[in-house]
């Protein structure tokens, strides 16, 4: 690991000033991803600005009945918060499905959104990787890619974003607030992650030196759910996941939110599926047709075509559960 200096910020302006948009500096949240990548030599910052003491650890109900979540709220506090559990159950479930109790106590909302891919070539500095070393190539396309993307990828990078939390945030139309030396800014989560194209090393639309300060959720359908599939029952990254919220009246879909995890370089909002569902009967046939509409765009590689079937089945299962939960109440 390269040597680095360490400073603790106590206010937002001070944190942004300390970082000073320096490409050699990093904000330190829980450190669960950054410190790990520093050990692996993937990240080698010269300066760290610790942001855990910033007054950004609150969760407030907004005027319109949404929620504003501070960037340094820990994953544990987010999942346990009564208003999150009441209004955005899928968000609580998504966070609880990720990592472990210890890691969730350390990990922050901002850090979770900015965590890097778990692609094995990315974390192995002896291997080429376009994301880590632009222009060096992508060994995953021909190599190990069982957990690679099936949507929105390019020949330059097929890695998936590993966040569970982000999938629920995508379904709930989250807006990310940030601060730079120039002032405050906002990005809808839909615009937060950049398309892969030929620049997989550029992951977000955040301006240089930006500090994420909060994530805001507008009101959403009350019935929501997150389901994650992984290679063991717990403490593993997703190989596919679905966050969904559903509002049905008289057997017809009034409102639906659907997002997929572990299928793309970012949490994947399933807009084609949503469009197919709106106004359709809330029944298994429509759920299947919606999944097919979304997954028609899938481009699987040699070893990850299972994800198409997995996501189709997951979509039908989660929407069916939500539909049944609604009629049971």
């Amino acid at each position: 690991m390269k040597e680095f200096s360490y400073r603790r910020a106590t206010d937002v302006e001070g944190a942004v000033a300390l970082l000073d948009a320096d490409p050699g500096a990093r904000f330190l949240g829980g450190g669960t991803n950054l410190v790990d990548l520093m050990k692996a030599g993937v990240e080698s910052p010269e300066r760290l600005v610790d942001i855990r003491e910033l007054p950004l650890d609150g969760i407030e109900v907004t005027g319109d009945g949404g929620l504003r979540i501070g960037a340094t709220v820990t994953n544990s506090d987010l999942a346990a918060h009564p208003e999150v559990r009441r209004r955005y159950a899928a968000l609580s479930q998504a966070v609880l499905a990720g990592a472990s109790g210890q890691l969730r106590n350390m990990a922050t909302v901002g850090g979770n959104l900015l965590q890097r891919t778990r692609c094995g070539y990315f974390t192995d500095i002896s291997s080429p990787c376009n994301k880590r070393e632009p222009g060096s190539g992508c060994p995953a396309v021909e190599g190990e890619h069982r957990n690679a993307a099936i949507l929105g990828a390019s020949g330059h990078c097929v890695a998936v974003h590993p966040s569970d939390m982000g999938v629920a945030l995508a379904a709930f139309d989250a807006v990310v607030s940030y601060r730079t030396q120039e002032g405050e800014g906002e990005l809808a989560l839909a615009d937060f992650y950049l398309p892969v194209g030929d620049t997989p090393h550029r992951e977000t639309a955040l301006p240089p030196g930006a500090l994420i300060t909060a994530v805001t959720l507008p009101p959403a359908p009350v019935r929501s759910r997150y389901r994650k599939v992984r290679e063991r029952a717990s403490y593993a990254f997703a190989i596919g996941s679905v966050a969904a919220a559903l509002d049905v009246r008289d057997g017809v879909v009034q409102d639906v939110r659907l997002a997929y995890g572990a299928v793309a370089s970012r949490p994947w909002r399933a807009r084609a599926a949503e469009a197919a569902l709106l106004g359709a009967p809330a029944a298994a046939a429509s759920f299947a047709a919606a999944a097919d509409a979304e997954l028609a765009a899938a481009v699987p590689l040699a070893d990850n075509a299972y994800k198409v079937t997995l996501l189709r089945n997951l979509t039908i299962a989660v929407l069916t559960e939500l539909q049944q939960e609604g009629t049971a109440r």
């Binding site: 360490y6 330190l28 829980g30 760290l48 210890q102 106590n105």
Partner: peptide, 12 residues
């Protein structure tokens, strides 16, 4: 709160 000491810097 339970935490992992291997991903936590002593200075932090």
């Amino acid at each position: 709160r339970r935490s992992l000491s291997c991903l936590q810097l002593a200075v932090a």
